[in-house]
Design a protein around this nucleic acid. Structure first.
Length: 438
RNA sequence: GGAGAGGUGGCCGAGUCGGCUGAAGGCGCUCGCCUGCUAAGCGAGUGUACGGAUUAAACCCGUACCGAGGGUUCGAAUCCCUCCCUCUCCGCCA
């Protein structure tokens, strides 16, 4: 059904948007990418693209001549008759070599340019510069009322002896946490609860992928080359710690051609995630919200192009279902063009209510990448046997960020006596316990 | 870490002292024929990317691709160099 790993490298021309599409729609591409804000310079594209095609044309014409003449030389028994041809071909070969060197330079320049171009936002995305302009699309659940001053989760957790930031700091440093006893068990319960829900009710296939990946995988999903600074890199082996399961799971089918009948393909994976959080100094310094290492259950889909929009809605609903079952209040926002991630064409964030801060905080991000990652990673499918390969659409979303879910439970279910009630849906995963502490 | 073997099309598998091999042969698959049905049999077809041409796609023309990159040569799957990967044995290890 599904083919195994081919060895072929991704064609460099498939690094972003269709080369022909950019060429033919330069103004539209410029306009739509412009809605993301920031600097955008496509002026060199036209020049490089034209140079490339000129060089390619000249080089290939000479190669055609070389092939013809060499074949003639091969068929001539008496080589003395073709000494002139041989001498001429020697010069043609030198010319080809020179052209190809120029071509290689131009293509590398073009590739550099294309690899750092983000995806085109969908036309339906709200226009805007920052998260201020995101559009709220729904709210669910009722915000809990407290007869006392609700505490932040770090106080609740430390008081219960289930969260230990101080010792984590000693062991590793800032932005690390240690879970203990019922805290550790709660985290593990959440992972199992989420995986069971997505594999059982939502029919995703469970994956346990490698947590370290190579450069090609990181480039395929769009983390590289632009965001290397955010990634942990291993010494000596050129491997990166994954910042999300999206990377290894989407790359499962890199350089593959799937059958139409395989789609949509649904995967879910629990992994730890590792992020440098460079550039976020001073933000969320307390608590579990922003860590160098955190757990996440991810949902990944491969779909046919015409299905991806509907599949994004389902993916979002699948992620929302986790919060509904846990009875945690949340809202969904439609990210504006300026707040979209590099690879995403459309993104819905789910934000859970955190009483101590009195705000909604992101707990899931569900995106449609359309063919952006599929191009970079060469993930294709055939509509029918013998048909031309087309790019699939890829999607993914958190289902959910486990640490932040634990935060939400501690804060929303906290009691005046310092104990925390366990959501009903989670009790079977905690030996039936109804409460932590107290 | 040490020793050895190998990487060819969807798969298996040939490639002679470099030349007409995108690549024999087989299998699979698709279409057609034949046959009460099935099986067998017969015939044809069956990679991808880029560029050109085209209103556009297909067809067509050209180029490239036999793990990757470089070299020798008029010409390389075939010769040389470097790297990567896989397998087997030994060692080490959860």
């Amino acid at each position: 059904m599904i083919k195994v790993w081919p060895q072929k490298q991704t064609e460099w021309t498939s690094v972003m948007l269709d080369l022909k599409f950019i060429r033919d729609n330069l103004d539209e591409v410029e306009r739509r990418l412009g809605t993301r804000g920031g600097d955008l310079d496509l002026s060199s594209f036209r020049r490089l693209d034209q140079q490339r095609r000129d060089l390619l044309g000249e080089s290939e014409a000479l190669k055609a001549e070389k092939n013809r003449t060499s074949s003639l030389i091969g068929r001539t028994a008496d080589k003395s008759q073709v000494q002139g041809e041989i001498a001429r071909m020697k010069e043609v070969s030198a010319r080809i070599k020179s052209l190809d060197e120029d071509l290689k330079g131009v293509e590398e320049e073009l590739q550099q340019l294309l690899l750092i171009l983000p995806n085109l936002p969908e036309e339906k995305c709200p226009l805007g510069a920052s998260e201020e302009d995101n559009r709220e699309v729904s709210r669910w659940g009722s915000i809990p009322e407290f007869s006392f001053e609700p505490k932040p989760h770090w106080d609740i957790g430390e008081n219960l002896g289930i969260l230990d930031f101080e010792r984590a700091g000693k062991i590793s440093g800032a932005r690390f946490a240690l879970l203990r006893g019922e805290g550790a068990r709660l985290e593990r319960a959440l992972i199992n609860f989420m995986l069971d829900l997505h594999t059982g009710e939502h029919k995703y296939i469970e994956i346990l992928p490698p947590f370290m990946v190579n450069r090609e995988s990181m480039t395929g999903t769009g983390q590289l080359p632009k965001f290397e600074d955010d990634l942990f890199h291993t010494e000596g082996m050129d491997l990166f710690l994954i910042p999300t399961a999206e990377v290894p799971v989407t790359n499962i089918h890199r350089n593959e051609i799937l059958a139409s009948g395989d789609l949509p393909l649904l995967y879910t994976a629990y992994t730890p995630c590792f992020r440098k959080e460079a550039g976020s100094h001073g933000r969320d310094t307390r608590g579990l919200i922003r860590q160098h290492q955190f757990n996440k259950v991810e949902l990944v889909k491969f779909t046919r192009p015409e299905d991806s929009e509907a599949e994004l809605a389902k993916l979002l609903a699948n992620a929302e279902e986790v919060l509904r079952k846990l009875e945690l209040p949340y809202r969904v926002v439609d990210l504006c063009t300026g707040d979209l991630g590099f690879s995403a064409a459309r993104t819905y964030d789910i934000e859970v209510w955190l009483p101590a801060q009195g705000v909604y905080r992101e707990i899931s991000s569900c995106s449609n990448f359309r063919d952006f990652q599929a191009r970079r990673a060469a993930i294709r499918f055939r509509r029918e046997e013998g048909g031309r390969p087309e790019f699939v659409h890829t999607l993914n979303g958190s289902g959910l960020a486990v640490g932040r879910t634990l935060v939400a439970i501690l804060e929303n279910y906290q009691q005046e006596d310092g104990s925390v009630v366990v959501p009903k849906a989670l009790r079977p995963y905690l030996g039936g316990a109804e409460r932590i502490g107290g």
